[in-house]
């Protein structure tokens, strides 16, 4: 029988490298994609490695309150943010938390004459470029919820937010993504 993630993480916490490697084989691709979104492709492998080493060393502290996947995303995110601060190439981005929804909606094409958000969304390269245009804080919530498919409470846990705050951030981030998708297709 295949071990579930939580059992593997507990075994890793007892020092079993093989159990941790099995977890990395399961979730490493998703974790790497998330880290690329946080620190960019050039730094991603270093940041991911630091995150996974920290996860292996910290696995003994896993209490099973969250799912193992949520815990891994949290530890790897913290390592990536530390890495980003060390690299200090990313200027602090001010993202207005209270920007009016109406203004965000209008920028996203809400209420405008015929829009083609459906067609644009099907163009993977366009969607990836639009995601790349978002402020990092918006990008990470969209990646956790929509790209990696974490449930709302899991994404909130990884981000250290209460669920309503995560949902508010997610909604604004999605509207900004729709606006970026619109701008990308105008630029193209």
């Amino acid at each position: 029988m295949e071990d579930d993630d939580e059992a593997l993480l507990r075994r890793a916490g007892a020092g079993e490298c093989g159990a941790f490697e099995a977890l990395v084989l399961r979730h490493g691709g998703a974790l790497r994609r998330f880290v690329v979104g946080l620190v960019g492709p050039r730094e991603a492998d270093d940041a991911l490695q630091q995150g996974l080493v920290a996860a292996f060393r910290g696995a003994g502290g896993f209490r099973g309150d969250a799912r193992a996947r949520t815990w891994l995303f949290t530890v790897v995110r913290n390592a990536a943010l530390r890495h980003r601060r060390r690299e200090a190439r990313h200027a602090h981005e001010a993202v207005p938390e209270d920007e009016a929804l109406l203004a965000l909606g209008l920028a996203a094409g809400w209420g405008a004459s015929p829009e083609r958000l459906v067609e644009r969304s099907q163009q993977r390269a366009l969607l990836a470029r639009a995601l790349g245009r978002l402020p990092a804080r918006d990008r990470e919530v969209v990646m956790l919820r929509d790209v990696e498919g974490l449930a709302g409470p899991e994404a909130a846990e990884v981000l250290g937010l209460a669920v309503p705050a995560m949902k508010s951030r997610l909604h604004r981030a999605r509207l900004r993504l729709a606006a970026a998708l619109r701008e990308e297709s105008l630029d193209a």
Binding site: G28, A30, R32, V118, R120, S121, A178, L181
Partner: peptide
């Protein structure tokens, strides 16, 4: 707008993550 918004959210989740390379693992 709602149809486009829903399509965008759904499209984001359609690609499985690429596996880590065996060398990296």
């Amino acid at each position: 707008f709602g149809a486009g918004f829903a399509a965008m959210v759904s499209a984001l989740g359609q690609d499985p993550p690429p596996d880590l390379s065996p060398e990296r693992v």
